[in-house]
Design a protein around this nucleic acid. Structure first.
Length: 544
DNA sequence: CGCTTTTGACCTGCGC
DNA sequence: GCGCAGGTCAAAAGCG
């Protein structure tokens, strides 16, 4: 309920990501890169107002009146409202018993006025609280960004010193100024990893990425043979080991959707499909086609137990700038992977550490972020199919069914900006967690950077920032109000208990559709119907 | 015609 | 060594 924040620009926490990406941007992007239109995708970023089915008009009204922007808070408001009403009920009764009919209307007006005043006061209170939370988040974000920038700057300088800088620049296609976007396409470890950025080599004519992991990883493959990376003795070893594992680390996102796949802002090309054992639903393999040689891949498969659950597994880091819509998910998965790796680095207790982190991240739900130790590759699973919070409010089943919502529209329309921030919340929280949990790693990294950066003040400066950030995050993590608010926001955004997919994943029809102008939302669960013979109707598996 | 998807074949790792 | 399963390749087909 941050409605009263009137000026649109500062309505949200200002992440470096340009959240202003409109669906139009998205569409444009798609148009640039391919003619294909996405037909049936679970759109994490469209803010198509699902509840529009029952209350589209209501939404407009409320937004126009500035009554609600965050639905989660809306629920809160509703509760408050209800409570007030209940409290005033006795008065009403007494009034009725005493005052005759002529006076009743006046009394009623008075009562409604006082009620209104109450509500307004309550709203103001909520607003101020909301603002306060936003400021806190802003502060954390700023600290984080500052630190991130600083680290990247140092890494860049380090690269320059080691001769990698030029390559880095040429790869990015920009100068130093690209640090900001970069931090979201690849959180840290920018330097050596770019071995994978080598230009496409002699693959056959198509736009296929030149090399699968083996070639991309190259010499690092040996180091990644051991599933759990060995901690090197030098920071650089740590860096390389982490990079190698980073490519093997996977981030799995479970989301409830009947759409064929989620729209995460990237462009994917399907390169294979398999029937995995134990699951009648085929597993589809995609690789990122936004840049030649991008090592990022993803697997999409439906859950065998519940076919409405879509499991998307990401692997690798993008080596190219991403559109804002893609940055959210990319940063989320990248951060999750980093958290996973940093948490699992110290061999044995790593898993526990990671679980602890997951729990710390989402105190009200240990099941939202789980880490698999048994998988061949370290995998972190973000489960968006469950309602983690006992505070979960009953919401209309159509409300925010499956999508993460489109940041742009959320902001532009003054809609649920928190929804737009969810990936960032995940990503940043995860990343922060990874930093603080795997502290020894980050410290070593920092140390490694410091070793190459003579100025002691830089280390002091960074240490100061680190401490500040540390304190801030610790304070936030231990602040039950914050965690509760965060949990409430997340739980209000992630599908409620009854995401019955009513209206057939209307999450796809955000107005003109996200990158797809044609009939959408008609996912006839083609997966299920056709997976027997390993065939999928094209309508059911359109890719960006 | 160019691009994407499909799909059978192939490669690789792992367990027995 | 063999079989199995996961993952990838690439020719063919489909689509706009």
């Amino acid at each position: 309920m941050d409605a009263p924040i009137k000026s649109p620009p500062p309505t949200t926490i200002q992440f470096p990501v340009s959240l202003g990406c409109s669906s139009a941007d998205h569409d444009v992007d798609h148009d640039h890169h391919g003619k294909r239109k996405v037909i049936d995708e679970m759109d994490f970023f469209s803010d198509k107002k699902e509840n529009g089915g029952g209350g589209g008009g209501r939404d407009d009204e409320e937004e126009a009146n500035g009554i609600e922007h965050l639905r989660g808070h809306d629920r809160l408001d509703f509760k408050v409202n209800t409570g007030l009403h209940l409290l005033t009920t006795p008065n009403t009764g007494s009034d009725e018993s005493v005052v005759d009919d002529g006076m009743s209307s006046i009394t009623e007006i008075k009562r409604s006025k006082s009620e209104m005043a109450f509500l307004q006061a309550e709203m103001e209170r909520m607003n101020s609280e909301n603002l306060r939370l936003k400021e806190m988040l802003n502060q954390v974000t700023n600290n984080y960004n500052g630190l991130q920038m600083h680290l990247l700057t140092m890494m860049q300088q380090q690269n320059d010193q080691t001769g990698g800088g030029a390559a880095e620049e040429s790869k990015n296609g920009h100068g130093n100024g690209l640090l900001v976007p970069r931090q979201f396409m690849d959180l840290g470890f920018g330097s050596n990893e770019e071995g994978s950025l080598s230009p496409p080599e002699g693959r056959t004519g198509r736009d296929m990425p030149p090399t699968p992991d083996k070639e991309l990883v190259g010499g690092e493959e040996q180091s990644s043979e051991s599933k759990v990376p060995k901690l090197g003795h030098s920071p650089r070893n740590v860096d390389q080991a982490t990079e190698a594992t980073m490519r093997k680390a996977r981030v799995s996102v479970r989301a409830r959707s009947e759409a064929a796949m989620i729209t995460d802002g990237c462009q994917w090309r399907k390169y294979g499909q398999k029937l995995a054992k134990g699951n009648p639903c085929p597993r589809a393999y995609y690789r990122c086609t936004m840049a030649a040689g991008c090592p990022v891949r993803k697997q999409v498969q439906r859950c065998a137990d519940d076919t409405t659950i879509l499991i998307t597994t990401y692997e690798g880091n993008h080596n190219h700038p991403l559109p804002p819509a893609a940055m959210a998910m990319a940063s989320t998965t990248s951060s999750a992977a980093r958290m996973l790796l940093s948490g699992s680095m110290p061999s044995a207790d790593g898993i526990m550490n990671s679980n602890f982190l997951a729990r710390t991240l989402l105190p009200c739900s240990s099941s939202m972020a789980t880490i698999s130790a048994s998988a061949p590759f370290p995998t972190i699973t973000l489960d968006l199919t469950q309602s983690p919070n006992p505070l979960q409010f009953n919401k209309p089943s159509n409300q925010f069914p499956l999508s993460f919502l489109n940041p742009s529209q959320n902001i532009a329309a003054g809609g649920s900006s928190a929804a737009a921030l969810l990936p960032q919340i995940f990503g940043q929280a995860l990343y922060n967690q990874s930093k603080f949990s795997g502290l020894q790693m980050s410290q070593e990294l920092d140390q490694g950077a410091h070793d190459r950066l003579s100025p002691p003040q830089s280390s002091m400066h960074q240490a100061g920032q680190q401490n500040q950030l540390n304190e801030t995050v610790n304070a936030l993590a231990t602040d039950p109000n914050f965690t509760a608010a965060l949990a409430a926001a997340i739980s209000s955004l992630i599908g409620g208990p009854n995401q019955n997919n009513g209206g057939n994943n209307g999450n796809n029809n955000n107005g003109n559709g996200n990158g797809n102008g044609s009939g959408n939302g008609n996912v006839t669960s083609s997966n299920n119907s056709s997976n027997g013979n390993n065939k999928l109707s094209s309508s059911g598996f359109q890719v960006n």
